[in-house]
Design a protein around this nucleic acid. Structure first.
Lengths: 376, 376
DNA sequence: CTAAGTCGTGAATCACCCT
DNA sequence: GAGGGTGATTCACGACTTA
């Protein structure tokens, strides 16, 4: 992985021959210029977290008098909706050109910008597949009591056109969600604690996204080995998660400070089967916990071998929370337990065990640990 | 309550003199034509559930072969985004004209249309206050397993402009939500069961909204007696809830079958009695009490010493209701609290305490005592 | 060492009346 | 209309401190 300092302006179009993409690299350049240097139809997925154009007023203080550290960076300032729209359409157009016909687009935003982005997405011919709501488990309150707590952000997921094929790993999502179809609203905590990149005690990037969000995005709509491009790379959450999930990435970021932080972070990221317990907090635990959540949040690592109490059968945990047997069969913890026993159903939580220091323990114990850690 | 069959086209503008609005009526007409007949700035809130522009390709069947009664009515077909945009801007422009400067706009939609609506709302000068996500507790599953379960709809809430005043019943919303600020995501069941209007076993309207949704909308952003207009009245959920909550309504609906169903339904709806409505206005209802009043009326004696919770700072109450510090500085309870803490502002009512028999008590407690003694 | 308490902070379009 | 004074207002979580 390396940083490509600046793409030559004179050689933008097809500067990079197909098959020789700058994979797993960060291009330090303007996003439109950098995309122009890539060939047509070479990317499987674009994830974009563009400036939101927040249009904030004066300072804001909490009831206790402390000051809110808001997003005041120059990159989020636009003089008018017209200028913002022009910018949006320009980068979307390039994203569309470099996407394969089977590729998909993800864009995240808030009410400040998402309607303008969505309109542009539709006007350019993309076909919206879902709008996904990221429900923040711990949003900042509305301190003055003037509105509803702004507790969510919106993602748009779109294919190249109405008739286009695209990747949707339905089974992976359903398994991750304990055998219930994944819905269009995802509850996840904001990026904080250990995961939040800091330098000299200050956050490196004002709007770093949680890895759990990108985990679900990439797992749902890309295949291993797919190339994911992020034109607003920031501190590289997309890259770190792509690496963990065995996807390739191309990041574009203009700010050297962000590039440096992203570089360091991605180098430290471990592909899934080697990664240690990651502190990737899940949402406020529901009464029900999906097995996939334990994997997503690092309580169980992909690759862990499970077996029944008498060690007659074995299975390996996959990244989406499914199990794979020795013969290649795969499915949920419940389904695989039932299949092996020839039973109509099976409670996977008590059937499957993992090897602990003091012997076999049911995976339900991990669920209990998770609940204890996340319940109030 | 009556149905005004058709507003004369020749007398649209100001046909209804201000003060003589067709309150608690359904106008059976095209929504733009009917709005044109209303005077400027006469409406407190507009709630709109416009056609969604769903472009379903053919019929949709469940895996068992049964038919899904989707939105296939003629009014829901638009040839292109351009036509839809034109229609959207036309009705929004009229809605804006008839809204008071202090009024607010609500629009509900799905990913098919909400981005276009939101862009139009912003372009016309409305100022978005929140986007609200209605999380459906029981959404229809995605039968084909090709996408995420579409489990929510989006509402846009906007004031007339960036600097416009508007109504937000913060206390009512907080009370409704168990004393925690109401968030921008609302979990509510879809409209089904007894509430769902049916005729001959078939639903009367394809997209009837639950009353709980309108209850929250109207309770949060209107006052008793306010006039609410719904340009896409359908089967009249807005009217039924407005009646229950002591608000006035004007509904516009073109389809005679819907008008008839709405008429019947609203006549059967029962208004809440006034005492309930009073309770829901609580908080705002409490009249402001000046600190000086408490001194004036003998609830606090001049010369009383006040301090903060940790007794770090002290001040003495003067006869005019100001505080004086040890160093001679004097001012209001708020200003002195802010000065001492070096904070931009301070709520003196909760900052300052007096010595009671059982320890320190905030001066706000004195205010409560005063209110209880003097309120009817 | 544990438990309880304190403090800091996060994509935020964040007041209103009277003169 | 601008400016100044009054007064209303926060949730969840992680890190750190104190008992």
């Amino acid at each position: 992985m390396g940083v490509i300092e600046k793409v030559k302006k004179s050689a933008r179009v097809a500067a990079v021959p197909a098959g020789a993409l700058p994979l797993d690299s960060i291009l330090m350049d303007d996003c439109i210029a950098a995309m122009k240097a890539l060939p047509d139809a070479c990317i499987d997925a674009v994830f974009a977290d563009p400036p939101y154009n927040l249009q904030l007023g004066g300072d804001l203080n909490r009831p206790d008098g402390s000051h809110v550290d808001a997003v005041t960076d120059d990159w989020d300032k636009f003089d008018s909706f017209a200028i913002y729209d022009k910018f949006t359409r320009a980068w979307l157009k390039e994203a569309r050109r470099i996407l394969k016909p089977t590729g998909t687009l993800w864009v995240i935003g808030s009410y400040h910008n998402i309607f303008r982005v969505g309109t542009a997405v539709q006007d350019l011919g993309f076909w919206i597949l879902n709008d996904i709501v990221w429900r923040k488990a711990n949003p900042m309150p509305n301190f003055k009591g003037t509105r509803f707590t702004n507790a969510h952000e919106t993602m748009i997921w779109a294919s190249m056109g109405e008739k286009s094929r695209y990747t949707f790993n339905y089974r992976a999502m359903k398994t991750l969600n304990d055998e219930i179809q994944m819905r269009s609203d995802w509850e996840l905590p904001i990026c904080a604690g250990q995961e939040r990149l800091k330098k000299d005690g200050h956050k490196v990037h004002p709007t770093q996204k949680p890895e759990a969000l990108l985990y679900r995005v990439l797992l749902s709509s890309t295949k291993p080995g797919d190339v994911v491009l992020d034109p607003f790379f920031g501190t590289g959450t997309t890259g770190a998660v792509a690496k963990r999930l065995g996807r390739r990435f191309i990041g574009i970021e203009r700010e050297p400070a962000y590039v440096e932080a992203a570089q360091e972070r991605i180098e430290a990221a471990l592909p899934l089967d080697e990664s240690n317990l990651q502190i990737m907090q899940a949402g406020k635990a529901a009464p029900r916990v999906a097995f996939g959540t334990l994997v997503e949040t690092g309580y169980l690592q992909p690759g862990t071998m499970l077996c029944d109490t008498k060690r007659r059968w074995k299975a390996s945990v996959r990244a989406d929370g499914s199990l794979v047997l020795a013969d290649g069969q795969a499915g949920s913890i419940h389904k695989m337990g039932a299949t092996l026993q020839g039973a109509p159903s099976c409670n996977g939580w008590t059937f499957w065990h993992y090897e602990a220091a003091d012997g076999l323990r049911p995976i339900d114990a991990v669920r209990q640990t998770y609940l204890l850690a996340t319940q109030p």
